[in-house]
Simulated scan of single mutants.
Amino acid sequence: MRKKLFAELIGTFILVFAGTGAIMINDIAGAIGHVGIALTFGFVIVALIYSFAHVSGAHFNPAVTIAFWSMGEFERKNVFPYIFAQILGAVIASSSLYLLLNENFINVSEVSYLGATLPSGSLVQAFGFELIMTFILMIVICSSAVHGKATKDFAGLAIGLTVGLESMFAGPITGASMNPARSIGPAIISGNLENLWIYIIATILGSVFAALIFLKVFQSD
């Protein structure tokens, strides 16, 4: 279990460090751009899944962990330890970025509050986008990595491409979280907790709903 928790911690650390780091560096240097940020999130997910799936299942996302538990694919006793490890990894990543880059900004608002996920429109719009995007992500995860007939060697690529695609089209609207830990880390370290609830509740609801649909519609095939 210790190896699994460390894999979840270090994997979530890498995800948040690379993804939100790209946002911060783009704010500082203007050298990456929106597409580059989206690709960073997608690429790092691909790398992490192929690196850690055989160790911990490569969740790196509390919403995914909860969804797997809801569909009987994950033991209840391991849910809290996994989520704790994921959030801790995200917080350490945001702390590291702050320490490494703080000489490049005066206020955290200059670097998007350390790459936090913030709605650009209404709260209803952000909630809807996050719920639907996490639903899509979880359906892809289940269909590519859980289904008995899936070609699982390509699961990492399918999941990473989905994250990159959703980040590319919805990033300017909501920050395209799809992951409570990814949002909690920057929010805690930057001190901007406003609207964080959206990125916790909507993503969990979206992932659990996707798990239910998968079980009822696709798993029986």
Rank of each mutant, 00 (worst) to 15 (best):
M1R: 06
K4F: 04
I10T: 01
G11D: 03
F13D: 06
G19W: 07
T20F: 06
G21E: 01
G21R: 01
A22R: 14
D27S: 06
I28D: 07
H34W: 05
I37P: 14
I37H: 10
F41M: 09
I45C: 13
Y50K: 13
S56N: 08
H59F: 03
F60N: 10
V64I: 12
W69D: 00
W69E: 00
E75P: 15
R76T: 12
F80E: 12
I83E: 14
F84A: 03
A85H: 07
A90Q: 07
V91N: 12
S95P: 11
S96L: 08
L99Q: 15
N102I: 15
N102T: 04
E103H: 07
I106C: 09
E110A: 13
L118N: 07
P119T: 03
S120W: 15
T134N: 01
L137Y: 03
L137D: 00
L137E: 00
L137T: 00
V140K: 01
K149Y: 14
A150G: 01
A150Y: 00
K152T: 07
F154L: 12
I159H: 01
I159K: 03
I159A: 08
I159D: 03
T162N: 10
L165R: 00
E166V: 11
M168C: 07
F169E: 14
G171S: 02
G175H: 05
A176G: 07
P180S: 00
I189P: 00
E194Y: 13
Y199V: 11
Y199N: 09
I200W: 01
G206D: 02
V208K: 02
A211Q: 00
A211C: 10
F218D: 08
